[in-house]
Every structure is written in C-alpha cells, then in structure tokens.
Design a protein around this nucleic acid. Sequence first.
DNA 1: CGATTTATTGAATCGACTCAATTGATGTGG
DNA 2: CCACATCAATTGAGTCGATTCAATAAATCG
Lengths: 253, 253
Amino acid sequence: MKGQGTVPLSHLVRKLEQFVRLSPADRAMLARAASERVRNFAPRADIAREGDRPTEVHLILTGWACRYKQLEDGRRQIVSFFLPGDICDLNVFILREMDHSIGTITSVTIADLSRDFFEEISASYPRIASAFWWESLVNSAIQREWTMSLGQRTASERMAHLFCEIFFRLRLAGLTQGDSCDFPLTQADLADATGLSKVHVNRTLQELRSTELISLKGKSLRIPNLERLMNAGLFNANYLHMEHEGRQFDSNE
Amino acid sequence: MKGQGTVPLSHLVRKLEQFVRLSPADRAMLARAASERVRNFAPRADIAREGDRPTEVHLILTGWACRYKQLEDGRRQIVSFFLPGDICDLNVFILREMDHSIGTITSVTIADLSRDFFEEISASYPRIASAFWWESLVNSAIQREWTMSLGQRTASERMAHLFCEIFFRLRLAGLTQGDSCDFPLTQADLADATGLSKVHVNRTLQELRSTELISLKGKSLRIPNLERLMNAGLFNANYLHMEHEGRQFDSNE
DNA sequence: CGATTTATTGAATCGACTCAATTGATGTGG
DNA sequence: CCACATCAATTGAGTCGATTCAATAAATCG
C-alpha cells in the first residue's frame, strides 16, 4: 500500500507532509475525503461564481485553476492560482456568499469536502487539522505577497517573482522535472494575474527570455538558474513557510 | 454589568456580534482573554518584525496598526490595516517565523492571546470559534480585494475604495460618528498602502476633495455621500461579509 | 519658538497602456 | 489530412497615468 504513485491525492499528501508527518490513519482519512465527491471541469470553466452560496470546500486533485474577481466594467483580476493539491478556503461555508469566482485554467478534477468532514478532522485528526491550518496560513501569506508584488515590483520583477512562486509550489507538490515544469497559463492569464496589459506581458517575457532567466515555449517553463530568477524577482521564499515544524507535530505511530 | 460602554474590548465584541450572538459566558471569556497580557506601543513602533518567531496572537484593543513588508532595497508596502477590535492571524504560532512586520500607526494597546487560550476556545466556545473563523475569512477577502485594487483600479478609484473600506470597518466596530471618523493615516501611509507615490497620493486626494467625495483635514475624515464615494471606488461591500448568519449560530442562553 | 514632519506645487520623464495590425499556433470538421 | 476558423503571441507607434526630483508651504511637536 505504500507509495501512492501518481494518483492525484499524492500532491496533497506530499505537500502536507512538508509540514507534519502523517500516520497511515491520517492518509486513509485523506484518501476517503478525496474520493467522496469528485467532479471534472473543462478548461476555462467556472467551478464557483461570485454570489453563490459556498456549500463545500474544494480540493484540487489535478489541473490548474484560479480565483478571480471582476469589476462591473469588465476589468478582471486573478487573485490567486490553485495548483494540484491545493485546498480552497477552509470553512468558507460559514459565509453566506462567495465574494469572488473560481475558474479553471486547464481541465481540472476536484474533490468536494463537506462540512461534516471538517468537523471530523478537527475532532479526531489533529495532524491533518494542523496541516490544513498551515496550508491556510501559507495561502494568506501568498496573497499578501501578491499585494507586495502589485504595489511595489516592476513589471519584470513581478513576472520573475510569479514564476518563482509557481515553481516552488509545484516542486513542493512533486510536479517539477528538474528545472522544468508544465506551464499552461496564457499571456492573457499572466496579464490578469500581474495587473499588466497583455502587450506588456509579452514584452516583459521577451526581456526575461533574452536575459536567459526563463525559457518558455508551448506550455512548458524552464528555469535554467533559479537563483538568478529569484534575484531578478526579489524573491524571498520565507513566505511559503516550507519549514518542517519538527517533532511535536509528528505522528506517533 | 451590561453595556461595556467605551472599554476597548467592546470593539471586538461589537464586531463579532455582527456575525454570531454571544452569550454572557462568551463575553466573559473574551473579557478574560483581552485582559490577560496587555501591552502599549508608541506610534510608529514595531509590534513584531519579519523573522520573529510568532508566539501569540495579537488583539488590537485601541489604535491603528498595519502589516507591512519591505524589499531589500527599501521599497515598502503596507499590506493591511488593523483597526480596534481586529485580530492578527489566528494560529500564526504554528509557523516558524513571521514573513512580514506589524507596526503601529498611532499609539496602540494590544492584548496577547496565548495558544492555550485558542485551544480552550475551540474546545468550549463554539460561537466564539465561529466568529473568529468569520473574522479570519473576512481578512482573507480584504487581502484579495487589495490585490484587485492594486491590479485593476486607477489611483483615484483605489483611494476611494480604501476610504470606503476603512469607513465600513470602523462603523462595524462602532468607531464612526455619523458620516465622519478618525483618520490618522498620513499621505505617506496611504502611498505605502496603495502602491502610489506620495506626490500622486497628494494629487489624488485633491481630486477627491474637489469633487466633494471626501473631506479630510487634520486627522479626521468625512464622507458626505457614501454612495457616491462607493461608486467612485467601484466599491462592493460583499467582500466584508457583514451579514448575520441567522439563528443557527445564536447563543441559546 | 525653532525643529521636524507632513503636505503641496511645478516640471520633466518614463513605464506601461491603448489601438491596430500581423504573424504564428492550435484545433476541428469535412 | 488539409483548409479554415479561432485563439494566442508579437510588433509598432503614439499617448497617458504616475513617477522622480526639487523646492516651498504648512502643520505639529517638544
């Protein structure tokens, strides 16, 4: 039973184990959760819309998605990306309605986690609960870092920073191959995420390519020298909190 | 014992009661929490610094503070404001170190809430726990809205939006007088929060004043017509989730 | 009261935007 | 499997919002 191989759940487990050591029972619980209600979405589809009542928490099993908001006049901002293994807001169901939408980038498989499930977790699976807290605090930190990027970083810094962030997050979930990873975002997506125009995104990418900070063709990203890209984006990984918390959170089994 | 008058704790209670109805026991618990370890800070002082180990959660009793991040070259971004009654990140103590700093704007009084305190809450005070969850989800929503502002709104929209947000939040805590409220932020603070230069903040304020959207002198803000300001800032209050969740969360006592 | 912080103004510049057209990919149906 | 349609990426030119630098005026504070 050891080694879940490439099953979708493994991204979540791999990521959570960055923080706590999970017991076989913990893993079984997660496996149960991830199979309860599974749904598939086409690329560029909405999983949830602003105004909807949130009734469950979504766990991204495969594919990329994003949270986005729109102004009445159509201006659109992607406020975060969801990668495989990511969980959308713990406990959202206590709010009456969504203040943003969740849409897919690629085709996506999600598992819907019910409220009861969360209550069971907090009552009986303290390590999972801890890890979920960690995930949620990291997501808040990412959102703050985006605020920083949009407020202070220049176009090329912003772009470099985003590439670093995504690469680190994918790596944590076991989704990189050496210095490369899948990268399904279009330049329009990057524009919506960075607050730049599509045209300027294009020019900024050319700049990053010409200085050999990235190589981006098709849907694949390669970062030949991560350190250099991090410097270019003033990227400090501390906000991802990829530290292991030590023994106090380990499984005793 | 009824009516806490203007004691600092009342801002928190008033805000949380927007969401749940608290029992006398709940209130007593909050009162205990808020008196456990109280500290005072001068204006423009740091409550916590990036790199520190977070050991407790801070509750703002009086005064204004902010979360901010800095790049190596000194560029500074305020990523959120803390107003009286606000709580800084539930459960941060599970992270190894702060990824940002918390600094005061005015003089500030805080209460430090221990980890044990939170465990007691989740075990025995479900309504407070719910309300804390709500507060934390709203804070995330605010952070997303800032991302939206910085990415998509123009200078004057951004400024108008920020004024609306602060006014709504202060009102929820019982800190507005009619169409006015205290407003201790300097133009430099506004610049750091909106990602604009000080000079442009100044010019944007002049624009808002000349169109009579705000009146801002000394440390006092007046919003003669909130609706107009909301339109100017494309402000939609839904992200503040100021809805009452209905009976299921009410105290039975 | 002078000292320091905060706010205001002007002028020149630049990063990023818009508009508009073109090239290159991707994908689908006949 | 090509032809057409659509979507994504690229390029050029002109413009504008916001910036920087620098100086001055007005508040605030000890």
